[in-house]
Amino acid sequence: MGGLIGFWRLYRRRRMAVAGASALLGVFLVALLAAVISPGDPWDMAGRPLLWPGQEVGFPFGTDVLGRDILAGVVHGSRVSLAIGFAATMAALLLGVTIGAIAGYFGGYVDDVLMRFTEIVQTIPSFLLILVLVAIFSPSAVNIVIAISVSTWPPVARLVRAEFLSLREREFVQACIVLGMSRPRIILTQVLPNSLAPVVVISSVMVASAILNEASLAFLGLGDPNIMSWGTMISIGRNSLRTAWYMVAIPGIAIIITVMALNLVGEGLNDALNPRLRGR
């Protein structure tokens, strides 16, 4: 508990990090209260099509080409974007941490094989890989999550490997071997908790990029056609960009706010968790 309080004391020193955390909290609240803020299905044609924001009382953000409430879309889309962002990041972390930990702890040819594989994946442009994977399999939410995680784990693996390479030589690991602990136990209970700080930092940025990736997919028409995400909304509005730009701009701003917030949080975490910056 003392550690958490100390962490918050370091974190709140950066005003932008606190702003990012508040914005993120706001997005979370909107996602949580989506059914309260705008009850009903965001796909419902609720009003006259192509209403500009503020044109009619019931639709503060206006409506799209088919008369769907844009506020409802943004509110419900936050759930989809956050869910895909966090799910894809979790899956990528699971993959990356496992591969990086094994490579870094065991070293030798295990490390060589895993790292060459990691580099091969890393040389493929990640968005292209996501695009191909989603195009081959059907564009469902689960497949989008899988595709994003499969193409974004390499940096995590390399980060965790580097941490493990230095941590495994530390004397407390030797001390655990001397006390008779097995290798899986040492990896999970001793080394892993020590390597998590940079992983926590990178993961907030990964959530942001996963949200962007999902939006990009949806924009290209490869989003899950059954769920209303911010990317879906942009792709719907794309055709009338010149006449009704608000249809693209509003979900776009939602993406910008969320991604910015996640990046600011990442930066704040980095400063608070980095021991070299402590005491400044």
Partner: peptide, 23 residues
């Protein structure tokens, strides 16, 4: 592994780094 720490154990030179900092 059953012998290590149970029948035979070891103390190292460097106590500053022999403990896990997060435990």
């Amino acid at each position: 592994q059953d012998v290590r720490g149970d029948s035979i154990s070891m103390v190292f030179q460097e106590p500053m780094t022999s403990l896990n900092p997060v435990m």
